[in-house]
Design a protein around this nucleic acid. Structure first.
Lengths: 193, 193
DNA sequence: TTTACTACTGTATAAAAATACAGTATAATA
DNA sequence: TATTATACTGTATTTTTATACAGTAGTAAA
């Protein structure tokens, strides 16, 4: 894989971001406008370089048919760091990583929380818990489990050979369950506003 | 979400597969040829139905600019519905939609919250707020804004021509800012566990 | 010093792709 | 029974998009 000039890297980066934000490839005209080129040929040349160097492929004469060979893993939500004075024009430039990258989403599902049994852990009715399957679970972790054919969210506690689900609200009782009814570990909480 | 006719489902399925195989959206002509339609309008009508029923979006007059709202290729986190007794083998089968689908992630970034100025709105130190750019903001919405070169999260309130940021914690004061320092509307809160 | 690569301007044209509009036929719904 | 929705045909037109070709200017290696 050959190196890119800084300008070529900028173009590749733009294509990456565009696809991420819009779900489809930019047209050459989109690229031309973004960089302020007065000629469409400026784009043609840059794309040719990126294709020759193996970062990109495209179908001839097809509209918006760019394909990234190496997606810069930028799926997910960029986490914004410090904002430079004035205007945060290109937020992505200040990114400190990503939330919900493809890697993080593997083996993950969400459950909508009903009731207030976990309110002391700041998990409220209507929140979504993000559950990861097949990970180690330790005492004190929050887990999702099946209790009476319903999914529930509780603290996990193993005492000797028994597994208990403990709510984060003293007005609910702890219950004992079989370990194989545990769906996974709660790795996050999300609330729509 | 409305149901699809079998023909509409076929078209959606084709678009899905095409994007998966090619990395870019099919053109209406690609769809026409695949199904053997003699008129481009057949495609137009099918796409309109899919868009009306919420399965698809597209940009007018743009080539290959279809965007799937629910990519079956597993973008986003599936929200699990009722769980049948025993094991939820194929979670996607019980899916009630997706969290963080590509559509939802468009124009979105995250900010890590510092301090407890929004704790009465259940937003705590260390949480991430999900911020959407370029959306309408109304009184009472939670917004992210730049105050003294730092990003902050506060309630939004417009009184006449002035814009105020109001914390959800009585021990902090409200401040007035210029409207163009508002980054976007907070559409969600996420907490890593 | 010639050659090659980068990074473009500028104009013109071709092709691909989307849309507009006028219809037809059938089945389902009110 | 009238209305609406589905599922198309057919033609024409517009818009978008890609490409072609002729140049300019700067840098860097051979």
């Amino acid at each position: 894989m050959k190196g890119l000039t800084s300008r070529q890297a900028e173009v590749l980066e733009f294509i990456n971001r565009f696809i991420k934000n819009n779900g489809y490839s930019p047209s050459m005209e989109d690229i031309r406008i973004f960089f302020g080129f007065r000629s469409p040929n400026a784009v043609t040349c840059h794309l040719r370089s990126l294709i020759n160097k193996g970062y990109l492929s495209k179908e001839i004469s097809k509209a918006r048919a760019l394909r990234l060979k190496f997606s810069s893993s930028g799926y997910g939500i960029p986490v914004l760091g410090k904002i430079a004075a004035g205007k945060p024009v290109l937020i992505e430039d200040f990114s400190e990583g990503f939330l919900f990258s493809q890697e993080e989403m593997k083996g993950v599902f969400a459950l909508k929380v009903k009731g207030d049994s976990m309110k002391d852990a700041h998990i409220y009715d209507g929140d979504y818990v993000i559950v990861k399957k097949n990970v180690d679970i330790n005492n004190g972790d929050i887990v999702a489990a099946i209790v009476e054919e319903e999914a529930t969210v509780k603290y996990f506690r193993r005492i000797k050979n028994k597994v208990f689900l403990i709510p984060a609200n003293p007005s609910y009782k702890s219950i004992e369950i079989k370990e194989n009814f545990i769906l996974g570990k709660v790795t996050g909480v999300f609330r729509k506003l």
